[in-house]
Structure formats: structure tokens, C-alpha cells
Design a protein around this nucleic acid. Sequence first.
DNA 1: GTGGTCTAGACCACC
DNA 2: GTGGTCTAGACCACC
Lengths: 131, 131, 131, 131
Amino acid sequence: MRQKTKALHIKIDPKSALPTYEQIKQALKMAILSGQLEEGDRLSSLREMALKLNVNPNTIIKVYYQLEMEGFIYSRPGAGYYVKIDPSKIKVGKQELFQNITEGYVSKALQLGYSIEDIIGEISKKENTDD
Amino acid sequence: MRQKTKALHIKIDPKSALPTYEQIKQALKMAILSGQLEEGDRLSSLREMALKLNVNPNTIIKVYYQLEMEGFIYSRPGAGYYVKIDPSKIKVGKQELFQNITEGYVSKALQLGYSIEDIIGEISKKENTDD
Amino acid sequence: MRQKTKALHIKIDPKSALPTYEQIKQALKMAILSGQLEEGDRLSSLREMALKLNVNPNTIIKVYYQLEMEGFIYSRPGAGYYVKIDPSKIKVGKQELFQNITEGYVSKALQLGYSIEDIIGEISKKENTDD
Amino acid sequence: MRQKTKALHIKIDPKSALPTYEQIKQALKMAILSGQLEEGDRLSSLREMALKLNVNPNTIIKVYYQLEMEGFIYSRPGAGYYVKIDPSKIKVGKQELFQNITEGYVSKALQLGYSIEDIIGEISKKENTDD
DNA sequence: GTGGTCTAGACCACC
DNA sequence: GTGGTCTAGACCACC
């Protein structure tokens, strides 16, 4: 069982309308669903994570608690929080999330007056691009 | 002189992490940028809109006030709120919004592990679809 | 008794924080205290005034009513509103108003950090100026 | 790092035709432009200020929000509101305000029938005066 | 404790 | 009826 914490690059946007804890939670969920974090990986400790993100420890407590409730991580008292992966759940969760964000994105773009062709054209530009 | 208020179908998602006023604001901005609301169109009155969306009038005041600050609408006290359109601004705002949501969507999908091809494939499914 | 209404140049600033009726009221009071409007002068009728200032007649009713309460004008039912001047009151009212606005102005300028000399210097510039 | 809130003596005139929030806003703007409040100074918290001025917190929220929009202060959620000063902006804002109030004052005095000499005479009396 | 969102509702100025 | 000001007060996110 791996004990080393993987480096995650979570950016908090203070101007976002989303609360801080929600931004962190979504970032961690993405990391898990994408496979960036794997079964047994240890999350940074509450204090470490709070320090890294320059955020109050209570905020991290809230995030870890909710992720635990949703079954993505579990705590080993005294040892830390670990990623828990039910592979089938991950697969389904990942697809659902992908379809959800796709649906949300496309419907907004359509409402703005862009066609599916416009959308695909815009996205194609991203190919062979770093950022 | 248009005086009739256009019907808008704004849905507030109570489960959203976005605050109510932000959801309404974004919906109205979309309607303006997309051309659904045009120069001179009258918005629903504060009380009407509040009633329609089942929300407190003060929340609508906040939305209208911010949209006014951003130059999308103006108020005529005693008469109502009206759409103000600087066409060039609309054009730019629309493109920026489109690029922003595209960028945000694509980066999430990529992080989830999907490729540009996967994304385009998923979006292509939307073609020839009603919903 | 003069029946011709004198031309007054009242400007309403829709962006002012002062309500419309207050702006009109102050302008009329100034005109009376300054001698621009004299004993027996007839004010524009409610409808005329409302039309000239592009304002709702009810607003003018309110203004005239308050000026009447304060003893600056009186109404002759069916004939209109007329300036009533108690010369001693006018003199006192004018001086009081002058001292009030001077006091208010000077204290603001001082708080901003300007000296009496600065103030006098700025005001002196107004001499030999049209606007 | 200054954290102490400076004492401000803001008086609300209930008889004023200016709305409460406007009076408070102007007083704070004056304090900033005059240098009474400096870069980094912390404003009283929403609740403190509301208590001090015997006004509803929502009224203070409105004041702070507008001052934030105008770039005079910024909020650090959970910490408070702080003065933000772009010195050049302050200088310009101060001069503009001074010229505005001077212009407004002088034009009223002139309309009342006083001459520039009268005005300067009245203001000169303020010299060597405490109040 | 501090900022931020939101509700419920009164009252005013103006159309 | 319509916008605008204001109060009283609850609840949330975060420090």
C-alpha cells in the first residue's frame, strides 16, 4: 500500500461564485474519477492540504467528510484519508460526469446561437495545443 | 415601441452550488448575448420576475442591479427595466462567453481522461437530436 | 397683478440622489428667495409645469403643496398658484440659506484637506466666467 | 500591518433628502479622499458599522458594495473590508470632488443673488474659527 | 466573528 | 403598478 501523497494541482479561484469547499471537492472528485488518484493513494493530511491551498482546515474537513459520505475516500483514524475505488462505480461515475458536463456545455452553446458544427470547430482548435 | 415582456424560461436549480441570484443573472446574460432579448425589450418587473421564479424581490433587485452595472440593462423608475445593447459589446461578450465555457468544458473532459476525439464524438451524438 | 408666468430654467438631474420633487422644490424656493420670482407672480399651472419638466403632474402637486405649507406660495382655486412674499421672511430665509450652504460647503472642503485660502482661490477663478 | 479600525465620526441626518446609504457612502468617500482613511485601513465590520450608525446591516452592505464597485475598498470574506488606494486616482477624485462641490455651491449662491465678493467675504469669516 | 445570500415585508417616489 | 430604500432577521461559508 502506497503511503506517499501524490502531487495534485488544485487551483482555487477566489472570484468564482462556487464556494471554496465545492471547488476543492470537485477537483478531488475529478482526480479520482480520472484515475489520477488510485486505490489506496493517501490524500494530504487536513493540515497539509489546508496549508497547500491556503485555506482554513475546517474547509478541508468539510470536503473530506463529504467525499467520505459519497464513498470516494475513507479515513484511517490517526493515519489519514485514502482513496477508495470501486472500479465499476468509478467507470460509471466518470461516464456520467462526462455526459453531464457535455450536456450542460452543449446546451449553453446552442442557446448562445452556435451550431454543433461551430462547437466542434472550436473544440478542434484545441488539438495540438498545450494549454 | 416594444412594451411586451418576452417569455423567458429560467430554471433555478436548488441543488446547484451557484447562488440563486447568480443562476438568474447568467440566464439573463445568456438571453441577451444570444439575441433572445433585444435592444429595448422590457424585462419582467421586479415583482413579476420574483413571483415567476419563486424568489424574493430583493434577489431580483440584486440581479438587475448587477446587470445594470455591467451595462446590459437600464432602469426607468416607475416604468421598468430595459435591455440596452451595444452590438459590438454583445458580439465580443458572446464570443468570450463561448470560448470561456468551451475552455472550461474541454479542460475538464481532458482531465477526466477523454481525448479531443472522444469529446467530438460525444458532441456529434447531439446532432439530429431534439432535446 | 401680473398674470404672465415667468420663464424658469429648472434642470432635473435624473442621476441625482435627490428625488425629483425635492429638486424642483429647491429650485422654486431659490427662485423666490433670490427675487427671481416676485410677489404675485403666477407659477406655471400644474399641467404646464409637469409638461415643461417632463414629470408626472402628481410630482408638481406635491411640490406646490409643500411650498404652500411653508408659506412661499398660495393657491387661488381655479386661477393657479401665486408667489407670496413676506419681505422680512424672504430676507431672513435667503440669509439663512446662504449661510447654510456656505457652512456645508466649507466644512466639506476643509475635511477634504483644503484650506480657506485654497477655497477662496478656487472660487476666485469663477470671477469673469460665464458658466 | 494595520488591523485596528480607525474611529470615524459619521452623522446621519434623518431630515436629509439624501437616502441614508448615500450619506454614509459620501462620508466614507470623503474620509478616503481626504487621507483620513489610508491604504490598508480596515473599515468597521458590517455589523459594527450598522450598530454604530443605528442602521440595518443590509444598508451597510449596500454602501460597501458600491464603494467596492467604484474601486475604493475591497472585501476579504471572513476578515473584513479594507481601503484600497490608487494614489493617482485619489488625487484626481479629490480634485474632482472639490471642484464639483465648489461649482455647485457657487452657482447656488450666485443664483441667490450674492456676488463672488459676497461669497468670499462670507467664507473669510470662517478663518480663525474653530467650529 | 466576518462577509455573503436570501426571505418577508413596509414604505416612499413616481408613472 | 414599478423601481428604490430600508428594516429585521435567518442561515451559510470561512477565518
